[in-house]
Design a protein around this nucleic acid. Structure first.
Lengths: 211, 211
DNA sequence: TAGATTGTTAATCGATTAACAATC
DNA sequence: TAGATTGTTAATCGATTAACAATC
């Protein structure tokens, strides 16, 4: 799915950084922040900050900058983090556990509720307070009260199969931590964590500098 | 550092996907693959495949496509994964451990050799066969035989401090898994894992579709 | 040979930057 | 008021797509 919210994806991807900075300032009880300050903290140009802000509807004041609380509200809403969401974790391995343990889901209004696993060894156990359930149990719960967001953390070989299963049971957005490219219907979004791309950029830079 | 290897970053970030697909075909002992096939598997246009390939120097054959082994070699070299590299992990928490456990570093010719931690509770222990050492011990080792690539997995509050330390001891490329924007000298590259940007894209898409 | 497929050049599109007018 | 800062419009830049020539 090419997900045409009117905000460019490049812009959207920068919002979490702006938001984190604004939140840090709010904690220090600042009232306003200028585009120049945000730019410095987030390592982009100040023109880009102002351009990006136009999509949120927040309006700054000459001389003062952007009102921090207004900024936080506007960014949070633009991203869609104003409404609470539940999340299903598919796969009961280390990645699931670490994600549930260290990723600050609460900060983004996201609540992981369930781990789905095909491995009988995990069934009935808990991961960070979440029950680990079978695909059948997952189907049952989805019929009652569907969750639309899932993280996929299985091994690459089962990724497509598990993804099909999630989609069949009503999941509409998949965060893919596997190294497999998923094929999904056009009304489902997949975002790849793509961490090997990060490593590619680093390796290339080092190589370019003969390191 | 704006790292001007002559390959556009957007292109470079797609290479790992192409490479994974080519490796899968090589295992099935295929000899050639067309741009149309790669495009389908990696979910991009076939024109883009051919454009991207021009930067690797690999040359395809009309009627047949690209020779798979040549493609793998060319992509591997373009990314810089042909030369072996060592990696230091800064931070001894769950993220480090999971990364060391599940990320297929060997596939990219990268060997994690060491965990650096300021937490005395971890010193002298091992994580996945790697010794956990103090910053002082790290400094000593860097003087002898420097490693240029590091992963940063500490908590956000210590991130800048630990990053300064890495840079001071000769690290030239940092893969930043914290949610803090790092400030580094211009000869050091930082790549942010930026997983909250992924979540922003998913949240926005769901919101745009009222889910 | 004809046809499939690559590789290259030009056109389009989108995102960033620059210039400057508006505003408090 | 003057000056700092936003917001908007135009220019630039880079990446993707389209068109088509080259090749086996």
């Amino acid at each position: 799915m090419k997900c045409d919210g009117e905000i460019p994806e490049a812009t959207l991807r920068r919002y979490p950084k702006y938001l984190a900075f604004a939140r840090a300032l709010a904690e220090q009880e600042w009232d306003y922040v200028t585009s120049a300050d945000i730019a410095r903290a987030c390592d982009v140009t100040e023109m880009l900050i102002r351009k990006d802000m136009t999509f949120t509807g927040v309006t700054g004041r000459p001389h003062l900058g952007y009102p921090i609380l207004g900024l936080i509200a506007a960014l949070t809403e633009a991203i869609g983090w104003d409404r609470p969401r539940r999340l299903v974790i598919a796969g009961a391995g280390k990645v699931s556990e670490t994600l549930a343990d260290v990723f600050p889901f609460a900060r983004y209004n996201v609540t992981p509720t369930l781990v789905v696993s095909e491995d009988p060894a995990f069934l009935g156990k808990e991961i960070h307070g979440m029950p680990v359930v079978s695909p059948e149990e997952f189907r049952r719960r989805q019929q009652e009260d569907p969750v639309s967001l899932a993280v996929l953390t299985t091994g690459g070989s089962r990724a497509q199969h598990v993804s099909d299963d999630l989609v069949e049971h009503g999941v509409k957005a998949i965060w893919n931590f596997t190294d497999t490219s998923l094929t999904v219907p056009s009304d489902v979004v997949v975002v790849d964590a793509a961490i090997s791309s990060d490593l590619a950029v680093l390796s290339r830079c080092l190589t370019a500098r003969s390191l």
